[in-house]
Design a protein around this nucleic acid. Sequence first.
DNA 1: ATTCTAAACGGACTACGGTCCGCTTAATAT
DNA 2: ATATTAAGCGGACCGTAGTCCGTTTAGAAT
Lengths: 203, 203
Amino acid sequence: MSLIPIRPGLPFGTQPERSDAARNRERLLQAARDLVAEHGVDAVTMDMLACRADVGKGTVFRRFGSRAGLMMTLLSDAEAEFQREFIFGPPPLGPGAPPLERLIAFGEARIKYVDEYGELARAAAEHSPQNRHDAPPVVLWHRHIEMLLREAGLDRDPWLLALSLGATLDPERTLHALRSHGVTPERLAASWRELVTRLLKDA
Amino acid sequence: MSLIPIRPGLPFGTQPERSDAARNRERLLQAARDLVAEHGVDAVTMDMLACRADVGKGTVFRRFGSRAGLMMTLLSDAEAEFQREFIFGPPPLGPGAPPLERLIAFGEARIKYVDEYGELARAAAEHSPQNRHDAPPVVLWHRHIEMLLREAGLDRDPWLLALSLGATLDPERTLHALRSHGVTPERLAASWRELVTRLLKDA
DNA sequence: ATTCTAAACGGACTACGGTCCGCTTAATAT
DNA sequence: ATATTAAGCGGACCGTAGTCCGTTTAGAAT
């Protein structure tokens, strides 16, 4: 009987990955990043990925579950970084600033994030209202907004209010404003600031 | 040379429909309504519809363009009625009431609409950010909100602000709150009221 | 080294939305 | 009635996400 070695990045208590599985995972991630860089998120198909990584299609789906799952995996580093910043980072995004300022900073950061990774984020949410609204990161952002609203003294159903504010920052909408209507990130951020400032005024 | 007879419901200047086309359209709409009633929106496939209406698949797509187009057609009566109400109907939804009250009524009506037709509305917007955000009805709601915001004296980029408020009432989100989280329409409406009331306060 | 087994693999297969194109037919002109 | 023609039709076909299941293989036990 041997101890199960700790593998960072895998769920606690999981068996270690078999070596061929680990190799294929790396091959797939590399191929996916390359294909996205070459053709853009929307043009990458799962068959294409399997072919490029030289694995079977079944392997791709075993690894990521779905196209959305693949995209989430590609996003996970950026997502983790974003979470770190608003949870542990310096104010005004992180703790230490008054709630209104944190809320403003949160929106700004989120808009910047979407401007940078929006296509991936959108693809990660496609074809599943469940994943779109109840994925762990989404729930976390939502809780964060709710907490800030409470801190600011908004006690009337802050959960639903947070849902509404979250809707404003939804990747698909934000991306659509940015790309299809040529709205600048700065203008979006100004509108967000206006919205939350009015909302929290004398709360 | 003969005058082109007026056919209600068809775009102006269009040639009249051939009789077989009209017959097939009715058959398809009836079949679609039946299938939706029997199996629910999400379970209805285009092949199923073609089979039930006893027409070729090509005919279905010639008629509606896409699955989303079919759903829009199924919604069009309810949608027209909704538009009539907030444009010409009695206050507070229609003209005559102060903008805040109209905005509150608009949200309430929209929530009721989604509670009733949400699955269709969601299906009508699926698979196309373009149709989702720039479809004529969506643009119309959006303009309406923008107008009310201006009337209320909110002059700081009311277009984007209207986009944010529209996001709050998005069918997919609203439906998800209603169905997956068991939020009541009343609670949603109360949250909407709270949101817009705070927003318009001393504007 | 051999055996064993559960994890991993691969690619044929399905379901579905959407397209294409050769055939049919309603409506009009003669 | 007949001819003409463009709108309409149908269903084979395609691309893509996702599933299934018989085969392979890494790694542990002996």
